[in-house]
Each structure stands twice: as structure tokens, then as C-alpha cells.
Design a protein around this nucleic acid. Structure first.
Length: 276
DNA sequence: CACCAGGTCTCTC
DNA sequence: GAGAGACATGGT
């Protein structure tokens, strides 16, 4: 993808492989806000970027351009990925709807905590809880709060999570955070995706779906197809309407899309509101 | 007032 | 291993 780095911004040329809305509103990140029709803001760990759409593409304002080149995976060519997915009519339609979808390379720990909170929850409330979390424990920056450090998160108990509205997930979070803090993601290198999933689902509050989201967004494994309520609906309308478990759906879909499963899933999820 | 949301856990068969 | 119910909470 064509882009240019300056010391306080990134200039992105064209709109066929990058769109703020498609990327930020496709449920892979929760700490973002839409400022107006052309302007979006996103926060990740202790950094922030503001993205403005213009005639020729997008301009991303940030003091850490290299960090965001990596985060938005700007060196990956999505035209190649799309080319290898459009044989499926449903994915092709979803790609046409949201051609600017990209998979973020989000940090492991923040992604894991966020997706534990995401379980049986809606995006608005996930955002609300994460914002309260950052305001309570995150470092105060000029115009936003950072995601809390591991040390800060290790220091709070169940009642803290109840206090910020995390609900019944509050029971899982302290133990899960301790276990996550013991993980060195460098140890994942060389491991099969299935093996990492097996380790993640041992943690409280992490089932197969949450583990797959962590694998996709936080570990950058693409041979996964997280199945949530929306993907379940589209599976029924696209494939079969009979009784199938989510585990079986995910298995069938990964069989179908292989190492591009994560991308296929993201295009479909972004298209979710238009499926029956 | 119900019903729903990027599910997980526990108990039962 | 599959199926049923409970579970916090804010939005519609």
C-alpha cells in the first residue's frame, strides 16, 4: 500500500485498502471515537492517532508514525488478500461493502483484557468499561488516558472491576490478568495456533471465541475464524440453517479459507448489519 | 417492560 | 461431548 512517513504524520494514498470506519468499527478495537464524518481518533497502549479523510486518501496525525505503520500493518498488500478470497460470493460482497478493512496488529496484553470484557457484551458497553478502566488506572496523557500497565492491573481485585461495570466478568479478570502477565509472547513463536489456543482457553473468562479473537488481533495468527452471534447468523444465512455448534462452524470455515480465515472473518463481521 | 450484546462456566445426561 | 441455565449491565 502506498504511504509516506513524515515526523508527525503518515500520508496514505488512495482509499481502496484503508478506511477509518471499516477498520475501527469492525469490532477488533474498542478505544476509538468518531469525531466527525471525516475524522477518527484511536488509542492503543499509551499512544494515540487522529485520522482525517481527504480527497486523495487519509492523513494520520501522530507523534509515533512508525508505531502506527506497524499497528495498521501498512506494509501488507490487501489487494493480494482480496484476490484470493473473492472466489467466495459472500466474502466478495462483504469486500465490496468494506474494501478498506484491515487487520490491526494490536498488542497482546491489551487485546486479551479487552476481549475477556467483550464476552456476551455489546461494543458500546465494552467501550464504556474500557474507558472507565483507562481513566481509573491509566497514565494521564495530554488528551487521553493510556491503557493501564500490567503492574497497575495486577494490583486491583474483583471489586474494582465490579466498580467500573464489568459485571460477572469481574470474577475472572484478576486471575486471568495474573496468568497473562506470566506469558511471554516470544514463546508463541514456533507454536501451532492450536497449541496457543489450548493454553489461552485454560485462563478464566477465555473460551474458544475470545481465544480466537486474541489469536487474530493480538497474536496475529490468521488461521482462525472467531464465531460470535453475528458470524453465527451469517453462517446460517450463507451455508446451512440447521443445528451446528459454533465450534463446528469455526472448523468448517477455517477448512474453507485456510490461512486467510482471519481476513475473511473480518470482512464478514464488518458486513454484519446487512445479514438478514 | 422485555430483549440483546464479538460467551463462558457449571451442571446434567 | 452435547445441551440447558445462570450470569451483570447499559442500550433500545
Amino acid at each position: 500500500m502506498k504511504y509516506e512517513i513524515m515526523n508527525d504524520r503518515i500520508r496514505i494514498f488512495g482509499k481502496d485498502q484503508f478506511d477509518s470506519r471499516d477498520i475501527l468499527e469492525s469490532g477488533q478495537v474498542f478505544r476509538y471515537s468518531k469525531m466527525d464524518e471525516k475524522t477518527w481518533e484511536v488509542r492503543v497502549s499509551d499512544r494515540q492517532a487522529v485520522i482525517v479523510e481527504d480527497e486523495i486518501g487519509f492523513e494520520m496525525f501522530t507523534s509515533e508514525p512508525h508505531f502506527f505503520v506497524e499497528y495498521f500493518d501498512l506494509d501488507t498488500d490487501y489487494s493480494e488478500i482480496k484476490k484470493n478470497l473473492v472466489w467466495d460470493k459472500n466474502i466478495a460482497r462483504a469486500i465490496r461493502y468494506g474494501e478498506g478493512v484491515r487487520l490491526l496488529r494490536a498488542p497482546f496484553f491489551e487485546t486479551a483484557v479487552s476481549f475477556i470484557i467483550s464476552a456476551n457484551n455489546n461494543i458500546k458497553r465494552i467501550q464504556l468499561i474500557l474507558n472507565r478502566l483507562c481513566e481509573a488506572l491509566g497514565e494521564r496523557k495530554k488528551s487521553f488516558f493510556a491503557f493501564p500497565t500490567v503492574e497497575k492491573l495486577l494490583a486491583v481485585d474483583e471489586s474494582f472491576w465490579r466498580g467500573i461495570g464489568a459485571g460477572y466478568r469481574s470474577r475472572y479478570l484478576p486471575k486471568a490478568i495474573y496468568a497473562l502477565s506470566e506469558i511471554d509472547t516470544a514463546d508463541f513463536e514456533g507454536l501451532e495456533t492450536k497449541e496457543i489456543r489450548k493454553r489461552l482457553v485454560k485462563l478464566p473468562g477465555i473460551g474458544v471465541k475470545v481465544a480466537d479473537c486474541i489469536l487474530l488481533f493480538g497474536v496475529h495468527r490468521f488461521d482462525v475464524f472467531p464465531v460470535d452471534v453475528w458470524i453465527e447468523k451469517s453462517y446460517h444465512s450463507y451455508f446451512e440453517s440447521g443445528l451446528v455448534s459454533r465450534a463446528k462452524m469455526s472448523e468448517v470455515l477455517v477448512q474453507r479459507f485456510g490461512t486467510l480465515s482471519g481476513y475473511a472473518q473480518q470482512y464478514i463481521y464488518n458486513y454484519r448489519k446487512f445479514i438478514q
